[in-house]
Design a protein around this nucleic acid. Structure first.
Lengths: 208, 208
DNA sequence: GTCTATAAAACGATAGAC
DNA sequence: GTCTATCGTTTTATAGAC
């Protein structure tokens, strides 16, 4: 078993944490290394020492969250298939639950904003990085949807997955109107969101 | 008349056009006034002379497109109600057709990327500007959906509209996998997209 | 209205002492 | 690994001639 890692945070970890906050708030161009290192309580030169450049730092900010997120998704998909619970609802659950769970954490919601920025940026090198490292996850889920919806043409299926993805992305990003009410616990709200999403996605995927 | 260069549009309009292109490509912080004025073929000082500041220029870039877009949406909704064609499909058509039509124009697709950036930015002053100037459109369509889906609770309705909005936004932004094929005309592809969206949205809004 | 010239500040990155 | 100091650029914004 691993030792308890957090020795009041290494310089590297503190930079990653501060970078996530500031990239979410001010964007990749908008957040300067000066603001970033000041927020992390480290020296200005530390970013270039530990990461090589600002761009490499951006890449590590993504990797820290997405490695675990997509591992969770594939693990959930795998165990759903093993246990025979691989209806459409279960596959959708495996896809969205880890992401929504992350987006409902304090730090995760910040990261979702970073991710939204990355998509809005249309930055080719960043998109290539995301595609190379995590594209296989989307391909695996797409194959699963194709298996469960065999009556749909390939084109029709892609259309519907695309629109479902839009709805999920929107919900994850927290751009929507829906806010958690005072009398609903955080966990209950997460579960409500997941169930709304799944029912909506099932309707959109299966309609005649 | 001394027209060597494009005198058909004013300095102000040329700046707006160049700003839209560069804000889409490089973001609001990423596009500098130097790049912008060079692309527009005007002097560096012209932005501050005509708009007052870079922020005011951003505001005008939005206003130029959104004023007409939302006027088209409300006009389409009004004429649908007048003619009695106010089924769910017709209301959705009024909401998405003007937006998708805009997003399929050359300059419009650029603007959609600008809009996506604005949402990702989470910039409060910009969001307030959008809400103040165009919030009434969303409220009017929401009221129309409530009228056509009376069996849904307010909360359930908001959830579904929210998810539909996500799907529409995604389709408008052009982030999806679906690309127009060679043998499909631009107009036909637009119509396909609209029909896919409407059918998907109807399923998501009306499912039991 | 448009231009040149420049002020004043912020940026990423790095060299070199410790 | 961390620090100070600074280089070389680039930024927004403005002053003042025409």
């Amino acid at each position: 078993m691993k030792a308890i890692v957090n020795r009041s945070s290494s310089t590297k970890e503190r930079i990653l944490g501060a970078a996530e906050v500031l990239f979410a708030q001010r964007g990749f161009e908008g957040a300067s290394l000066r603001q970033l290192t000041a927020a992390a309580g480290v020296n200005l030169a530390a970013v270039n020492y530990h990461f090589g450049s600002k761009d490499k730092l951006v890449e590590q900010v993504f990797r820290r969250r997405l490695d675990t997120l997509n591992a969770q998704r594939l693990a959930a998909l795998g165990s759903a298939r093993e246990s025979g619970n691989d209806r459409l609802e279960d596959v959708l659950d495996a896809f969205i639950r880890p992401a929504l769970k992350l987006s409902h954490e304090d730090s995760g919601s910040l990261f979702m904003r970073v991710l939204a920025r990355a998509f809005a940026e249309h930055d080719d090198s960043l998109r290539q990085f995301l595609s190379e490292n995590y594209g296989h996850v989307m391909r695996q889920f797409t194959a699963e949807f194709a298996r469960l919806l065999p009556h749909l043409s390939k084109e029709e299926l892609y259309w519907r997955i695309d629109l479902v993805t839009g709805a999920l992305t929107h919900a994850m990003s927290g751009f929507g109107m829906i806010q958690r009410k005072q009398d609903v616990s955080e966990g209950a709200h997460l579960e409500q969101t997941i169930q709304h999403l799944i029912r909506f996605a099932v309707a959109g995927l299966t309609h005649p």
